[in-house]
Design a protein around this nucleic acid. Structure first.
Lengths: 126, 126
DNA sequence: CTCTCCCCTGACGTGAGGGTCGAGTTGCGG
DNA sequence: CCGCAACTCGACCCTCACGTCAGGGGAGAG
């Protein structure tokens, strides 16, 4: 039985987020999400905040950022909620937004090409 | 000066297709596109058909097929133009089309998530 | 001839994970 | 308390589609 402390084991986190155990551990190795604590035996124990962080990463993934960049963006967003006035932070965020917009554009083009190719294939099926 | 035989060196093909030299060579290593011939010194010489083949591959890429699958699809399409009656070929093509449609769907979802995330970022820039 | 490109092969690196393994942990039922 | 199934651990190798680097060869201009 899991304690009602709200801490989850990696398997439960995986179920909740749709990420694989391996992926979650991989993110930790790369400094993206460290579990709040460990059990006596060494099991990773995640807080709701940890899970939220993982879910943000999951939402970022389609943008094609690298893990390193996602890490930067996560800490940037955290810093910004603490010091929203900081111009340097805002500038950095603007750059991320531009990159995201560019990526959205690229994704739209890919979708377009993919749709046309699928239509071509369909045309062959007469 | 390049001979007017219509044969292109790899660099010219790269320029024409937007693929990198490395990528073109890699495709050859994996049996996707073999240059029609070689110069005396061993330079790859590509015909227009070769280039067309590369361009088909480029259009397939957003669908996320693996190189092996692209190769199969390319030969399948070639076989189909020769024997359009063959039911086995048509079936195989139908499977490719289904996979393509699924991938298009997935791409659309990714685009959706990406757009929402970009909008979130924009919202932070007030 | 040299100079300057362009091209060659071969080997190793990278990014984001996936698979597998043997060993240790947890916690329930009895 | 013991047994046991389910869960987890770290460590390792595998994959895919290239990028990158090293060391060399070919083509044509001057």
């Amino acid at each position: 039985m899991v304690a009602r402390t709200g801490l989850l084991q990696i398997g439960q986190v995986a179920e909740r987020t749709g990420l694989s155990l391996r992926t979650i551990r991989f993110y930790e190795e790369n400094g993206l999400v460290r579990p709040t604590s460990r059990s006596g035996g060494g099991f990773r124990l995640y807080s709701d905040d940890d899970v939220a962080r993982l879910e943000v990463i999951k939402r970022m993934k389609p943008l094609g950022f690298r893990l390193e960049e996602m890490q930067e963006l996560l800490t940037l967003l955290a810093d910004l909620t603490e010091r929203p006035e900081d111009a340097a932070l805002t500038d950095r965020l603007r750059m991320f937004h531009e990159a995201a917009a560019a990526r959205v554009h690229a994704l739209r083009e890919q979708l377009d090409i993919a749709e046309r190719f699928a239509a071509d294939l369909a045309g062959r099926l007469d």
